[in-house]
Design a protein around this nucleic acid. Structure first.
Lengths: 159, 159
DNA sequence: GGAGGACCTTACGTTAACGTCAGATGGTTG
DNA sequence: CAACCATCTGACGTTAACGTAAGGTCCTCC
């Protein structure tokens, strides 16, 4: 019925190609869901909000490698704490409209803002890491002293 | 009525000390709110969830420098995309119970997990930054070409 | 041919993190 | 003393990001 060989027009689990990442490989929603550890519901949710736009074969969603990459970017953005609306903007940066000049300028400016934000985030992470490592060192120190005291002193400072 | 001189037991806007960050300085909720650009409601919310525990003077919340620092940590954590529950754990790392050994070990382990997570986040930010900078360079390039073409060619490629 | 899977849509439920509003208190100021 | 802040405590409203359940379609396999 479908011209794309017999890729799961029904939602079958069988991928169209065996080569793991042929550029023409197609994915069902369940493939991506299990690969990235998210629910199909979440993926559909991203689509509802304009972050993904898979093709359809007989009602079923079919994802190309490009859509897969977009999903990866979405999940990375989430791990960085961005809201979906922000991630959508970020995705728009990735496929630029190379034709119109004003668009390009706008995209560039948004990109720079995003870069600045990420750099600030980077600073704050670095700061937090320094603090945590220092705390960790102190704790290790304290632990070592307690262990030493426990093993050396047999009995003398009761209680 | 209150022994702490006359700090806003009423919620007055007057800080107890002029020295900007005397260790004994006290803050009203409005002070911290306006200083950090968050609402008093948010600050109370953090308290309701155990992230802050200010003293009280006549019903009003009074924040020490330590509480102020904790609030800063909360907000930093938020900017890094952490949930309040996670931030609470992080705060607990900062004031360790130096007495009990098992507690120390647990804290240390939690700290290490948090460090690992931050490092992973750092990697992902670095990756995103590389990508965004590359895209930015391409866009700048495209813009330069378009501008060059526009200024040089007077008329010949109509439409 | 009927049971089982993967997928679909629609719709209501849920959690986190506050916003917003109402009504009350208490100190300060003209 | 009246008006005005800043603050307080509920309590309900809101948004984001899904979870979950219901009911239906379309293969495939025994």
């Amino acid at each position: 019925m479908v011209d794309v060989k017999d890729i799961s027009a029904s939602g079958r689990r069988v991928p169209i190609t065996d080569e793991p990442h042929d550029a023409r490989r197609l994915y069902a929603i369940g493939d991506l869901a299990s690969e990235f550890g998210v629910s199909p519901r979440a993926i559909r949710f991203y689509e509802d909000h304009g972050l993904l736009a898979p093709r359809r074969i007989g009602g079923n969603r079919v994802y190309s490698l490009r859509e897969r990459a977009r999903l990866q970017l979405i999940l990375r953005g989430k791990r960085l704490g961005f809201a979906l609306a922000d991630i959508k903007e970020l995705l728009d940066l990735y496929d630029v409209d190379r034709d119109h000049l004003e668009q390009l300028r706008a995209t560039l400016s948004k990109g720079r803002a995003r870069i600045a934000e990420l750099e600030r985030q980077q600073q704050e992470i670095a700061l937090t890491l320094r603090e945590l490592r220092e705390i960790g060192a102190h704790i290790e120190d304290t632990i070592r002293r307690k262990e030493a005291r426990r093993s050396s002193a047999g009995r003398k400072g009761a209680s």
